[in-house]
Write a protein that binds this DNA or RNA. Structure first.
Length: 549
RNA sequence: GCCCCCGUAGCUCAGCAGGAUAGAGCAACGGUUUCCUAAACCGUAGGUCAUGUGUUCGAAUCACAUCGGGGGCACCA
């Protein structure tokens, strides 16, 4: 849309033989008195032409005032050019949006570029918590939007199903299992996992296996415990995510990476690049050569790799799989970790610019203004399931993407549960449902869009009507901006605004009025288009678009 | 000490790539329902955009510094 105006401006400049560079912008002014579109082209380029900005602008408006679609062009302020478009221009656009149906906003903007979005990637040592829920909503919405825009996006969950924490998991289950068989635990070790879910796992294992495991060797027993726990916890996580409407194209297992020898592969590449050395019985990576603040250990003096090695190996596979861009969605506690990861990628002669990190900030849970404390040590984690059960999938998804990723997120459970105006989710869904009601009424009143002649749209002359169309015209650009900035919250904001504009329009003007069937049809055409855009937006956020509430 | 994020209305936050008088929701106060769902709408009030300097024709937006809040700095993952 702005592109079209931009083209017209460039043509105009050429016609007038004015010099210009591309730095000027076209925007939609906040203030309606400044027109539908506004450009600073004369402000930016006046010097080039040895003119005053206003002078240059004056010359240009002559051209625009002769053009169709432009109701009026005027010079304002220090030298802005403001354009006022004719209503017929907007009516034509409305037809375009209406006819696009569920594809309005969709495009081949992404040119099939392959994007890997890795998110959640929670340790398989417990149920998913609220931070994972935020990541899930974030990553999934970004995924949906990017695919809608013609990218080939993929969702991936990296499972740390090997290494230290998994052994601790096995030991934790072991302790609870032995407890079931009469062992008294005076002090449950502090490093073990304390959550109730460990007891439940042990109980479940006990039902399946009875006391049989007690007769295994310790090694076999722990192995059994480990695999059992991993499988069960994985299932739990998949279930939680599914309830949340989030699926992954791929679950990448660390254990598998180890089995397939990718760790050794990565290590040998690093060694070939002469970026490793031995010191104090450990193998180090000279990451400081690549801008990290110090070198990092790859192989500990006990011979085991640090968690860093599988991570390098994992990212190596991402590059090997040929993605154009890889987005890692991480928690705020990982930012110190990224320089060494990027260092490793550079050491492997790969393009570190293809790897992009998004940090999601913390989630603070509130309930009626009171902060809910989350403490892993005390075993009091508020889980993703609890949040979904408490407030419902739709509200949870909305609230988790409503804030930009770099903001700390305050999530109020009471608010998300409220079915009132305070709650934006219901406000938006209600707008959608309301339009369904109107459609029903239209049907009863025998008003429909059969053989609709778009010439009738010229009856739509109210500011509210033109504003709704303008808002819908913006939609594709909102999505593109969202995808480029990796900021799904823009969709939440946009949808809330569009719903608000509709509610206001509805309250002021009757849509269906039997005395004016033609006007009613035009208005019905408009609001059905609005409903369609609302539905597209809600779908992209993974939120239901109900016909009734 | 070093690094990351944040600081906009009483509260929670938008503000797209710097633009012309800074927005929304909630809370407060006042009003609207014979009519397509009042889960809605209208109105009033509320801000030296943390502070300072700089870049620019123009800064909430960019840069630097200061102050304040949150988080991170393992041969743990």
């Amino acid at each position: 849309m702005k592109d079209k105006i931009r083209k017209d401006i460039v043509n105009c400049l050429k016609k007038l033989k004015l010099d210009f560079n591309d730095n000027f912008t076209v925007e939609i002014p906040n203030n309606q008195q400044h027109g539908d579109f506004s450009t600073n082209v004369a402000l930016v380029n006046a010097k080039l032409n040895k003119m005053k900005p206003r002078e240059m602008a004056e010359e240009m408006i002559q051209v625009f005032n002769k053009k169709r679609h432009y109701k009026k062009a005027e010079v304002a302020g220090p030298g802005f050019l403001n354009f006022f478009m004719s209503n017929s221009f907007y009516h034509k656009y409305l037809v375009k949006i209406h006819n696009a149906k569920q594809d309005w906003g969709s495009s081949n903007y992404g040119k099939k570029r392959k994007i890997l979005i890795e998110f959640v990637s929670a340790n398989p040592t417990g149920p998913l918590n609220v931070v994972s829920a935020r990541a899930a909503a974030y990553g999934d919405t970004l995924f949906r939007v990017m695919n809608f825009l013609g990218f080939e996006a993929f969702r991936e969950f990296y499972v740390n199903d090997a290494g230290n924490q998994v052994d601790i998991l096995a030991e934790s289950v072991e302790l609870r299992y032995r407890e079931l068989h009469g062992d008294k635990l005076d002090d449950f070790p502090p490093e073990a996992y304390h959550g109730e879910y460990i007891k439940e796992l042990a109980a479940k294992l006990n039902v399946a296996e009875g006391s049989k495991l007690l007769h295994y060797s310790e090694k076999d027993r722990l192995e059994k415990m480990k695999n059992f726990a991993l499988e069960e916890l994985h299932k739990m996580q998949v279930d939680s995510l599914q309830k949340f409407g989030v699926e992954f194209e791929n679950w990448m297992s660390e254990k598998k990476l180890r089995q397939e020898g990718i760790l050794e592969e990565a290590l040998s590449y690093l060694a070939e690049a002469k970026c490793t050395y031995e010191n104090d019985d450990a193998v180090w990576f000279s990451s400081s050569k690549f801008g990290d603040e110090k070198d990092r250990v790859l192989i500990k003096c006990d011979g085991n790799p640090t968690y860093f090695v599988p991570d390098i190996a994992y990212h190596l596979t991402k590059f090997q799989r040929g993605f154009d861009t890889m987005i890692d969605v991480l928690g705020p506690d990982h930012h110190g970790y990224v320089p060494r990861l990027k260092a490793a990628i550079q050491a492997l002669s790969l393009d570190a610019n293809k790897l992009e990190i998004v940090y999601l900030q913390h989630v603070n849970l509130f309930s009626g203004g009171q902060q809910v404390k989350m403490s892993k040590r005390a075993g009091r984690i508020v889980t993703m399931d609890e949040v979904i059960d408490e407030v419902g999938k739709d509200a949870a998804r909305y609230f988790f993407i409503d804030r930009k990723p770099s903001s700390h997120l305050n999530f109020d459970l009471q608010l998300a549960k409220k079915q009132t105006a305070e709650n934006p989710v219901y406000y938006i869904q209600y707008a959608h449902a309301r339009i369904s009601s109107i459609r029903k009424k239209a049907k009863k009143s025998k008003i429909n869009l059969k053989n609709f002649d778009t010439k009738l749209l010229k009856k739509l002359n109210l500011n509210e009507e033109i504003d709704l169309i303008k808002k819908m015209i913006e939609f594709p650009n909102i999505l593109i901006g969202l995808a480029n900035a990796r900021e799904p919250h823009r969709l939440a904001t946009y949808t809330h605004e569009l719903a608000g504009m509709f509610h206001k329009y509805y309250a002021k003007h009757p849509i269906i009025n039997s005395d004016e069937p033609q006007l009613s049809r035009a208005r019905l055409y408009l609001i059905l288009t609005v409903q369609n855009v609302l539905r597209i937006a809600l779908n992209l956020m993974g939120i239901n678009a109900p016909d009734k509430m």
